[in-house]
Design a protein around this nucleic acid. Structure first.
Lengths: 347, 347
DNA sequence: GCTGTTTCTGTAATCGTTTACAGTTTTGAT
DNA sequence: ATCAAAACTGTAAACGATTACAGAAACAGC
């Protein structure tokens, strides 16, 4: 049905070897004839045959916990933008924040791709190590393994969280809560630690009930915020450790008629497209998501090149800076306004 | 390096054929031995060889204009959810709203995948037809070709747009503008037509300047809104034909200190995760994005089954309903409030 | 025209599976 | 125990490219 290299060879009156070489861009004598044959037949090499023989698939897998998370969508876009100018295609796989799905996906990917960009669901997984053992280049993005001097592109989670908390403290807050991600993920733990460190640094000891460990999903942010509001003495400010949980928290505040900014200062990790449109506009810690993806892609490409050269590439651990985008959702605390309101309502 | 079927066969003391059959789930006598060999070696079939021989790749391509558009991200998620329980993997490719990139991607995909789910950038492209000619199943999503009695999963664009405009008219608006997508795309033209029809139906003739044809991107929505505001007599309400342009329009309104809802009613096509959090909460026409993806995936799966059975499947054109989510960004017009403000400012 | 060198070409093996075909073993009925 | 049918297995030929290797053609210098 679809033409093979043999069809082209016959039509051009040469051997398949010559056609193959022509396709690879080598200089051949029968160039004109071969080009014509290729065009007339609309020949395109069968990737399966090519991969089988050469061992190269021209595919990289990109494994993310959730493609509908705008952060990961941006990362994917960054990866795409780099690979667009190469012969590589991209598998995008959702692991759905589930280690089992992730393992399945990785094993599946192992013998169809040339490299993997992975945002692991947990730091304790060792499937990625299996992948590396098979000699497959792998670069971690956003998250890494606990062992890890492996290729990875991260952001300064601790620094970002500290900047967030510092911002709140500078506004006068002492009752600062965190809605944290799981502590067995790089960003979960890093942001949690940063929160703790900055508070400690300021000599503030927040009650344990202010530390809600959620799961990076919107619903968990919602629940966590409700629990914070239900406290006898709710915090006056909260740091939400990712975009989805921030959205959940904001919705909870709205549902409970708590004035964002005035009654409860909110700062999120990750900018949102709509952050500036919210009322009040949301103050966030931003990070370069697309850039992060692009860097990871280039790291992988470099890894390919080194594989060819037999010189084992030195591992790179790249940490990008975050920065504070100050909008209006963080304001000085108003002397326990919420706690009083809370008491009134409660009695 | 990685074990082949031959290694397994030797270790289990059988032929490769038997191992192959075991892997395919057939009943074999040496089952125990083969299972052990497979496990001990960690054997996984090389996809390239399998594809070459059997002609099946277990890959489908999903081509979308922009993965960072939450709508398409949701569609991808829907597609994923269906294929997760099958042996198929998904290529996600951005066409970046560019017909050239799309063509390139499609040609590339043709000999590595078993089927394609495509949101074409334009209705006039005929690369998709080439794909179909090669016998590759293809289902259109969100958009179709003008020729088209082909498999496709669409939404009722005309109906949705009409509902949007009707809602505005019912509130008392007569000066209703549209920020439309390109007219050579299915949703662009459909929503534009719906707008026109519903206005016509109500006996309203909106000036041509109220019809801004933009390109589905946020920046174009922003610009279009600015142009509307610069008119001598700006509209009192605007229908934005997709989520990105709605965001752009809202930002333009904010930048120009126009009160959304009070001075300018806004209704968008596609819900946004944050829509309910905006001030005022955004009224939108919603559609089932994840579901749309899932349906497309099932259509493709059905197509595979029919291909096996040699019975050419009859084409399906599925149109899903949209529905109005009424929030607070659409209110009755306030007697040319904006026009007056505009004049005052302008003089 | 001769020779040596460079450049190009063709032959055929190879990658790791699947599968038609023929051959073998098992089963079950007698 | 015998035999036919049923169930399984092995041999070897594909699938469509790439690539050593050896051989042919072109080129250059004399």
């Amino acid at each position: 049905m679809t033409p093979t290299i043999n069809d082209v060879a016959i039509r051009a009156g040469v051997s398949t070897a010559t056609v193959s070489r022509y396709m690879a861009g080598e200089k051949i004598r029968a160039e004109a004839a071969v080009r014509r044959a290729v065009e007339e037949l609309g020949y395109r090499p069968a990737m399966a045959a090519r991969s089988l023989r050469s061992g190269i698939h021209y595919v990289v897998a990109m494994v993310v916990p959730d493609i509908t998370n705008p952060y990961f969508a941006s990362v994917v876009k960054g990866v795409e933008s780099v690979f667009r100018s190469t012969p590589y295609n991209i598998f995008v796989c959702n692991s759905d924040e589930s280690p089992e799905t992730e393992e399945q996906v990785l094993l599946e990917a192992m013998n169809r791709v040339d490299g993997i960009i992975l945002a692991p669901t947990t730091e304790q997984d060792d499937t990625p190590l299996q992948v590396l053992e098979r000699g497959l280049p792998l670069v971690f993005i956003d998250r890494e393994l606990s062992g890890g001097d492996l290729d990875s592109v991260l952001v300064d989670n601790v620094g970002g969280a500290r900047a967030a908390v510092r911002h709140l403290i500078e506004l006068g807050h002492t009752d600062v809560a965190i809605i944290s991600g799981p502590l067995n993920t790089t960003p979960g733990r890093g942001r949690y630690d940063g929160y703790l460190m900055e508070l400690c640094n300021a000599g503030i000891e927040a009650p344990e009930a202010y530390r809600r460990v959620a799961n990076f999903r919107e619903s968990s942010g919602y629940d966590a915020m409700e629990q914070l509001l239900a406290l006898d003495k709710p915090p006056t400010a909260v740091f939400c450790a990712n975009n989805l949980m921030t959205m959940g928290a904001l919705k909870a505040l709205q549902a409970n008629r708590v004035a964002i900014g005035d009654e409860m200062s909110v700062i999120g990790f990750d900018d949102l497209d709509m952050a500036s449109m919210l009322n009040p506009p949301l103050t966030v810690i931003d990070r370069p998501a697309v850039e992060q993806g692009a860097i990871a892609a280039r790291l992988l490409l470099k890894s390919f090149a080194h594989n060819d050269a037999e010189t084992p590439a030195e591992r790179q651990r790249i940490v990008l800076p975050t920065h504070l985008i100050e909008r209006e959702s963080c304001r000085p605390p108003r002397g326990g306004a919420l706690a009083m309101k809370h008491q009134t309502n409660g009695s």
